[in-house]
Amino acid sequence: MSIQLDFPAVLERWPSFLAGAALTLELAFFATVLGALIGTLAAVGRGSRSAAIAGACKVYVEAIRNTPLLVQIFLVYFGLASLGLKLSAFTVAVAALTINVGAYTAEIMRAGFEAIPRGQIEAAEGLALSRLQIYWHIILLPAIEKVYPALTSQFVLLMLASSVCSQISAEELTAVANYIQSDTYRAFETYIIVAVLYIILSLVMRAGFWGLGLVLFPRRRRLGTPL
């Protein structure tokens, strides 16, 4: 028994692979930026003194964390369509991924917020800083620093999970692979190449987060110690 691998037949299609990989990265980028924003707001919201806001944030987080991503994508896709909104598959994919990763980010950020010692906040209150200023200047960056590895993993996971967007024919890497393997009848080779490309994308993202960390945490850059 031997396996006949014919990579050249598949690699011929490299521009399609590259375009797919680029779109995957683009999806991940927008969903990461927007998801980080929404997730952080939801984490702040869960600590709100208003029971309605705190409750709404909790429902959002729990609803997302207890349903499959693919179902969420279909809900956004068909939901927006039934509202008469004609959006591109890319926009729908970004929206669904953002909503998804936002909920996980909220949980991670909440853990980060809770790790800030009470005394830090009292010191800031004693200096007459407002609640918003305390979140912005005192809590946010140290909280992010404390959960940065978890955030990085979550966003890389999001990029990998974006492969299910092939189901709504967003032309990302997995969707491209599906076309190529049905054209070439070289499924194994195609998915080997796709797997390697996903690994490269993961490494690119991790490198990006590492670089961003250098900018965000100057203290760590100088002293090298975790907070």
Binding site: P117, G119, Q120, E122
Partner: peptide, 30 residues
């Protein structure tokens, strides 16, 4: 709290800021 300064047993300096930033934060922000 602008009229009252309070210092605690456990210092509570903000660990991610330099001493200068710790000091300038409130005068600038408040």
């Amino acid at each position: 709290r602008q009229d009252v300064g309070i210092v605690f047993q456990s210092y509570n300096l903000f660990p991610h800021l330099t001493i200068e930033q710790n000091i300038t934060l409130a005068p600038c922000a408040v």
